[in-house]
Amino acid sequence: MTYEGWIAACDAEDIDEEDVIRFDYEDRTFAIYRSDKSEYYATDGYCTHEKFHLSDGLVMGKHIECPKHNGRFDYTTGEAKRAPVCNALQTYPVKNEAGQIWIKIS
């Protein structure tokens, strides 16, 4: 379901606190995060270093760690925080409306 570029991604309860899930839409893939304060964020799915999906990585506070090389990003801003990653991650607007998580990918 879409409206004005917003896409229904998942239910708020599909993601545990301080965790991340994968969301695929058409030929694109994203990672959707729920922080330890139950705030929701979204980024591109693949790490900017090598093509490993960040939804397989561990969320620690506001950081996501790549499952393979332990590079780290701040998923709230996309900023690269630890080698070997040096390029920032694309982030996307997210909203939680009555337990429905929407992301704006265009």
């Binding site: 490993f52 397989d56 990585g57 561990l58 499952p67």
Partner: peptide, 9 residues
């Protein structure tokens, strides 16, 4: 699968 990384970490 790659998802084992979370628990190993």
């Amino acid at each position: 699968r790659n998802g084992i990384a979370k628990d190993i970490r």
